[in-house]
Design a protein around this nucleic acid. Structure first.
Length: 418
DNA sequence: TCTGGGGTCCTAGGACCC
DNA sequence: TCTGGGGTCCTAGGACCC
């Protein structure tokens, strides 16, 4: 048996924990740059605010209904997430942290799984204030289905989907769009063949599913029939790619300003690599204009370069990124986003050297980065940075409704008045 | 006026090798 | 007139997830 724990409206719930007066109020959380809606409380969902829509399109609904608006605060959400996950790990024998607000747990051998799940739920709610739902079933995909009904139908937020008759009934009620693995493209394709529910989908011929939706679709179908295709991965493997990208807070034309952002992103990628103890074999840079603009054709510049020797050295990655930027930058366009991707990672202690590799200066640089990383991790991001990242940071993003970092910054601790 | 960020996996087709 | 067969590796693009 597999259990899936999923935090309800996670970001919105995090904001509520430290602002209990908002308990019954509609809340939305915005993406970076205050651009799109990325989380909604149930009250906001009822008002018809859809996931992912740009804020300006729902501005009227927000204003007319006193919806509380928050800029994204990842320091807060990340910290709350690790608290929830650590509580779940204490209780569950085997756990895979699947995303910031979800975890799969192996319930094999658990005698009364509903009882265990209910206990988890009350421990998490009591210790963190975050409401969660837990779905239990034979496979990961079915546990997702169970979780859907845990949120929808049950008062206590725990739902086990185990009896054959019950599974068939659930799949008949579940729109195919809600399946884990069906996105907008597959949905349109399936609908065009008259497939509307999860039950319709499992009736389909396997070869047909394989042809239309690749092996991923077939695995999903088998999982829905109770045949496990995905195991619990309790040991997270090293990331294969690491990306840092941001929209600009303002429209940007000049190479100078873009270069500052690229250097900052490249340095951040290098730092992330060092945290993971990895080195990357390639560096890519992206630079794009506004895809929604009507006055200017969309331009998406993307280029990669392979490194002679995999590295996590900020300066080497920055240099590669600068060269790439020079080759995709076009004069005269108005840009809205830039980013750096490093990838094809290898463990830092297994880097394949070549004949021309020289140790000279490497040890010093390693020590330098160790100190810089330590200072930045304990005293705040970019306390020490490369000069090329720029001081003014004109390209920085908008965050007009940012909540305090209640749990990760001393000056932001909640004050209780007696 | 105003549209996020960070990942994974799969496939087809081309390059290349013997 | 007539130009193989089989394999691997790499990459770009597409689809999905939260």
């Amino acid at each position: 048996m597999i259990a899936l724990a999923d935090c309800n409206n996670f970001y919105a719930s995090c904001e509520r924990v430290f602002n209990p007066g908002l308990k019954t109020k509609p809340i939305v959380v915005l993406s970076n740059n205050d651009g799109c809606i990325i989380a909604r409380s149930n009250e906001a969902k009822v008002l018809g605010i859809k996931m992912g829509v740009p804020v300006f399109q729902v501005r009227d609904i927000i204003d007319n209904n006193n919806v509380y608006v928050f800029s994204t605060n990842f320091a807060l959400y990340g910290d709350m997430s690790s608290r929830v996950m650590s509580l779940l790990s204490d209780i569950s024998p085997e756990i895979e942290i699947y995303s910031i607000d979800e975890a799969f747990m192996n319930f094999t051998g658990v005698k009364d799984s509903v009882h265990l799940a209910s206990r988890m739920k009350s421990v998490v709610t009591k210790s963190t204030g975050i409401p969660i739902s837990i779905g239990i079933a034979a496979t990961k995909t079915l546990s997702k289905v169970a979780n859907y009904f845990a949120k929808k139908q049950t008062a206590n937020g725990v739902y086990a989907l185990t009896e054959q008759q019950q599974i068939v009934q659930a799949l008949k009620e579940l729109p195919v769009s809600k399946l884990w693995g069906v996105g907008s493209r597959h949905l349109r394709m399936l609908n065009s063949y008259g497939i509307n529910t999860a039950y319709d989908f499992i009736q389909l011929n396997e070869e047909w599913v394989l042809e239309k939706m690749t092996i991923m679709g077939l695995r999903m179908q088998r999982e829905l029939k109770g045949d496990p295709c995905f195991g619990i991965d309790a040991y997270p493997s090293r990331k294969k790619n690491i990306r840092t990208s941001r929209s600009f807070g303002v429209k940007v034309k000049s190479l100078q300003t873009i270069q500052e952002s690229i250097i900052a992103h490249a340095a951040r990628c290098a730092e992330k690599l060092r945290i993971e103890n990895s080195c990357a074999r390639y560096v890519s840079v992206i630079l794009r204009t506004n895809p929604f603009s009507k006055s200017q054709d969309y331009y998406y510049g993307y280029k990669s370069i392979n490194l002679e020797i995999p590295t996590n050295d900020s300066m080497e990655i920055v240099n590669a990124a600068k060269i790439l930027l020079g080759s995709i930058y076009k004069e005269g366009l108005i840009y809205t986003k830039s980013g750096v991707i490093v990838g094809d990672t290898v463990p830092a202690d297994q880097v394949q050297l070549n004949l021309f590799y020289s140790e000279q200066g490497k040890e010093k640089r390693k020590n330098l980065y160790k100190s810089v990383d330590f200072i930045n991790q304990t005293m705040g991001r970019d306390k020490i940075q490369l000069l090329g990242q720029g001081i003014a940071k004109k390209w920085k993003l908008k965050q007009e409704n940012l909540s305090p970092c209640y749990t990760t910054r001393w000056t932001d601790l909640l004050r209780v008045h007696c």
